[in-house]
Design a binder for these strands. Structure first.
Length: 584
RNA sequence: GCACCCGUAGCUCAGUUGGAUAGAGCGCUGCCCUCCGAAGGCAGAGGCCAUAGGUUCGAAUCCUAUCGGGUGCGCCA
């Protein structure tokens, strides 16, 4: 139940009933909005309908507003309608509307706010896709959390979501990885390998890989022919790395549906070959030369003819190469084929959660989307900016050399999963993020994670207390449906209900904009409304939720508290954060 | 040089897709516990929304230019 969408329909009906002739055929209602007014004194709902439609209907905004207002006044749910400013229509609804909202939450529980706007559209969210050459580090964390929460959000908003991870198991970095693992194998056999040579992966996480090679093959693996050995090592090491990465992701409660191997697309007659052939037939792939890159010229740059994709026809700055000088495919070629594969699997939206260092990649991905799908599917890229780590205000130093970086595991084990997830979502994805190890574990209102979770725990605490004091309340939550919500007349209570009523609207808006951070901010506001009202009970005991002299009022208030707990829990679930029964 | 992202309170950031008098938290100045969790709440001070034009009933939001910060710029993934 979304009262904003509901009233938007009623307003459309009123406008239609006016019988006015639109200037150009059908009336365009797309710009009409119904929102909570910025200032609550203006009413419960506000619409810009008159201002947006005045031109089409050839009327002055204020005159049209008066007409629409007149029509709305006959609605039995409407208490008052005012026309204000340049033509705003402010609506105050009857208490029965708020009762309905509360009843809807109590009945739907954590399904309140679930939406059908996605209409089961097939959406693919690709996120993380970290190279399988080592453990996840903090840099990957934000993308993992944002992608996962976005997937949850879209699913809650009625989309058919697939969570996907592309394993980059085909590039030259995998050769290096295999060589590095081989050294660790020799080391496990007791050989002195000395320092890991420059250019190989020095991280200690490869030591167990060497160990398990030894356990499996003893010393015999050393004697296999080089080519056979190397091919096996690549697969073996990648699968070990993926095990490690999956374990890291599990710490964050991030789980993908599909792990797609880049390697599976390479090779004669495989996906990349086939895709490029089909694009060649459409003249999207051709042989040609590119102008030299701007800025600092690479040492080994030479002008040569190469295989190019016509991405510049689709909004990219230049055409992009598909084949390297050694004849193998570029990463971009794999991406083209990968997109085609997603298209063939029926996805209508391909969402990519990328690190900020991939900003330059967005245009060409979008170009691929337009060129390959012909507009039947959309590419949506979200960039995640860098996370800066702090400890009590001091920047945390880390060096990427020698494998000495802060890992995802370090962070989660130190501060816990919930603070990591929440804080990564408490910012727009394209804004820089400061993450302070100390602050996020504080149990105070300075810490938004705690503040929201505390709101939930407080609700649960009240409900526990009520069950104890009032004994016969074993019937709730079922019994709460029978409560008389009209008894909730206090401003603070109504303020909370109004916030609850916004939840479905927040879900739709956040899903449409692909911005899960809006959910985090909404939860903060809802928690704030609760905490604020709670404290009024300090000064005015008659406002406390439990009042043993007034069982009916208490029941209604418990319904309110229960509703808040359900919406907070449901919002936190979208974010992938726990809703604790009590804080400890 | 080009492309993309970002410039909002002293600091860190929201801003309902173009709406009314621009909002939070931190920090600062003061208040509020005989009490369902003070692990909280209330109030005050603090703004040329980087700058200059434009679009319209109306701009922090859209367009153009400028300034400032970040990122990237065949054959790395």
């Amino acid at each position: 139940m979304n009262i904003f969408a509901d009233f938007a329909e009623r307003i459309s009906a009123v406008v239609a009933a006016l019988g006015l002739e639109p200037e150009a055929g059908a009336l365009d209602l797309s710009r009409v909005t119904v929102e909570p007014p910025r200032d609550a004194a203006h009413g419960d709902l506000a619409t810009n309908a008159a201002m947006v439609l005045s031109k089409q209907l050839k009327m002055k905004p204020r005159d049209l507003a008066e007409k629409i207002a007149e029509g709305l006044r006959s609605d039995s749910d409407v208490a008052a309608v005012d026309v204000a400013g340049p033509g705003f229509i402010n609506i105050r609804v009857n208490p029965v509307v708020w009762s309905r909202v509360l009843g809807a939450v109590v009945s739907a529980r954590q399904n309140f706010g679930r939406s059908a706007r996605g209409q089961n559209t097939k959406v693919n969210v690709e996120y993380v896709s970290a190279n399988p050459t080592g453990p996840m580090h903090v840099g990957h964390t934000r993308g993992a959390v944002v992608g996962d929460a976005l997937a949850n959000l879209l699913s809650f908003a009625g989309y058919d979501v697939t969570r996907e991870y592309l394993i980059n198991d085909a590039g030259s970095q995998i050769d290096v990885l295999a060589q590095s693992a081989y050294l660790r194998y020799l080391e496990a056999l007791g050989e002195d390998i000395g320092e890991i040579p420059e250019g190989l992966y020095p991280g200690e996480y490869l030591i167990p890989v060497g160990q398990s090679l030894k356990e499996e093959f003893g010393a015999s693996f050393k004697d296999k022919p080089e080519a056979e050995r190397h091919a096996f090592l690549k697969d073996f090491t990648v699968s070990k790395m993926m095990e490690m990465i999956k374990a890291d992701l599990d710490l964050l409660n991030v789980h993908h549906d599909v792990f797609y191997s880049e390697k599976s697309m390479h090779g004669e007659g495989k996906a990349i070959d086939l895709t490029l052939d089909s694009l060649r037939a459409r003249d999207l792939v051709y042989q040609g030369t590119l102008p030299p890159p701007k800025g600092e010229l690479p040492d080994d740059w030479e002008d040569r003819e190469q295989t190019l994709f016509r991405s510049s026809n689709y909004g990219d700055d230049i055409d992009r190469p598909l084949v390297k000088s050694d004849g193998s495919y570029t990463y971009f070629a794999a991406d083209v084929a990968y997109f085609k594969d997603k298209l063939d699997r029926g996805f209508k939206e391909m969402i990519f959660i990328l690190g900020a260092d991939h900003a330059g990649y967005v245009k060409r991905l979008e170009a691929v989307g337009r060129a390959v799908s012909g507009g039947s599917a959309e590419v949506i890229c979200r960039l995640c900016q860098l996370v800066k780590l702090f400890r009590a205000g001091e920047p945390v130093k880390m060096s990427k050399r020698s494998g000495n970086f802060v890992t995802l595991r370090d962070v989660v084990e130190e501060v816990g999963r919930d603070p990591v997830r929440f804080m990564m979502l408490y910012r727009k994805n394209d804004a820089h993020l400061d993450f302070d190890f100390q602050k996020v574990t504080e149990q105070s209102k300075d810490n938004p994670v705690f503040y929201v979770q505390y709101g939930h725990a407080r609700c649960k605490s009240v409900l526990r207390q009520a069950a104890e004091e009032l004994g016969g309340l074993s019937v709730f939550p079922e019994g709460l449906r029978a409560a008389d919500y009209a008894l909730l007349e206090d401003e603070g209570e109504q303020n909370i209900i109004a916030k609850l009523a916004q939840w479905p609207r927040i879900v739709d808006g956040a899903a449409e904009a692909h911005e899960p951070h809006r959910v985090a901010f909404y939860l903060y506001e809802l928690a704030s409304a609760l905490h604020g009202h709670w404290s009024k009970g300090k000064e005015k005991p008659q406002l406390r939720f439990i009042n043993d002299k007034k069982p009916e009022l208490t029941l209604a208030r418990l319904a309110l508290v229960y509703a808040v707990s359900q919406v907070i829990a449901s919002g936190l679930k979208v974010l992938g954060v726990d809703a604790p029964e009590e804080m400890r």
